[in-house]
Design a protein around this nucleic acid. Structure first.
Lengths: 256, 256
DNA sequence: CGGAAGTTTGAATTCGATCAAGATGGGTGG
DNA sequence: CCACCCATCTTGATCGAATTCAAACTTCCG
């Protein structure tokens, strides 16, 4: 039996520990598969996906999955848990590019240029289970399989692109409060599509430091701003549970 | 004969004026074609591209090509001049997402979802000549034609994605000076690949207001920061000509 | 020569950062 | 089971990078 992973937010010891585990059931029964990149193929031919999956792999919180400047040979789907992609500046400042949620994939962007090293790092935020595929295989056999699959592939890239451009607008032209509301709405929307939010309440395991590093702020100021939103009965974040108290007000602050 | 377009930076009269012009020579001879999205097809079968091109179209500076919330039916390659893509906030603040240079294309990102309206606006920065294609045609016949073409397509998307993530890092975690140096290096690099920079001197037609709207700053502060770089003999921008005086220093400031 | 767009410079202001000190709370080890 | 530890969050005081407001200057064009 494998070791049990404990703690949402583990300490920094042994940065790259990983624990193998037997795969969960066949991909056909996967709760999150219908929201993944290869959903069309999964629907038509679930065994094809099961066959492509090399294994599943578990990580504790805050473990580095792939480091900047390495060349990934694998392709991952997050089966459970949250991850994030970030870039580190020479002096240690960190910018989180995007949070990865269950059903999201990693190494999509570099799939067409297999020999270019990553320019950012992929890390688990919570304990996380990944389904592991061979990068070349998934490209050839799943992504280019059918017209529906090509459309899903390009659609995924486009959605990712949309999140990035919206983040650029946030960082460039919105106040701290606006950015935070924007982020809450983004995450709620993405989670809702996967059945992980009822529209007003969802799990948000990111610390205020993660949020700060995502929005170009400091954790101190994130704390102050969240306190304000809480005081005004607009939004609350406690013990990794996010609650939208006043969706209209939230959207108003986010929009301008 | 058509009207002649005058002035790099025209006034705001008649925001959507456009002037037709006879197409320049066949695509096979195009100076910029080798750097475009469909370069592989152009090399193998230049007539295919010529046939796909509906027309060329000229715009004066600061004209809106496609507005936010509309559904584009055309696909453009910039034959000459600069353009930019931006998003407007309700109160009039503007965030420029990216500058488009000769050989760059537009509506790439929305090519897979033909019925989703744009969430940003495409505008000319200088007088600009576009080669116009049908959006569906270019997707089917050029982008999906050959393996080399698919690779070029995905490679283009990846490069664009790289620019966006780097911009996010800049906006989130870099000082005004760092952002400006970063932008100079990005533009120089992109232009050099197209033979439009010798490594230290190139045309940069953006005003300080454009730069400010790209980097999340105000034009006043861009002016002050450029003055500093000029004073320190690192970089100079005068009359739309950018000159890198000290590349090493520029890179140092940009990197951290 | 007059006007408009762009740039520069100065002074005052502000949003968010930085520094610092507690408070809270869960996990670990004794 | 208790005590300590460490990460996270909170709150206060001060600081500073970039904004805002304002006015002059420069160029180019009509």
């Amino acid at each position: 039996m494998n070791k049990i992973i404990i703690g949402m937010r583990s300490t920094n010891v042994s940065d790259t520990v990983e624990l193998s585990c037997p795969p969960p059931g066949p991909c056909a029964n996967c709760a999150i598969g219908g929201f993944s990149l290869y959903a069309p193929t999964l629907k038509e031919n679930p065994e094809a996906i099961s066959r492509l999956r090399k294994e599943t792999r578990q990580f504790a919180a805050e473990r580095t999955i792939i480091r900047e400047n390495t060349i990934p040979t694998e392709f991952y789907t997050i089966y459970s848990g949250w991850g994030y992609i970030f870039k580190l500046l020479p002096d240690g400042r960190r910018q989180i590019i995007v949070f990865l949620l269950p059903g999201d994939t990693f190494s999509l962007w570099s799939i067409a240029s297999p020999d270019v090293p990553l320019h950012y790092t992929f890390r688990s935020l919570t304990p996380m289970t990944l389904c592991v595929f061979d990068r070349q295989e998934i490209l050839r056999q799943a992504v280019a399989a059918s017209p529906a699959q090509i459309a899903a592939f390009q659609g995924t890239m486009e959605r990712a692109h949309g999140f990035l451009t919206r983040r650029i607008v946030d960082l460039g032209r919105r106040s701290a409060k606006g950015r935070i509301c924007q982020l809450i709405l983004e995450l709620e929307g993405r989670l809702r599509k996967k059945g992980l939010s009822d529209g007003s309440r969802f799990t948000l395991p990111a610390t205020q430091a993660h949020i700060a590093d995502t929005l170009g702020l400091t954790s101190v100021y994130v704390s102050r701003t969240l306190a304000e939103l809480r005081r005004d009965n607009i939004f609350e974040l406690q013990d990794s549970v996010a609650t939208i108290l006043d969706a209209a007000a939230l959207r108003t602050i986010a929009d301008e």
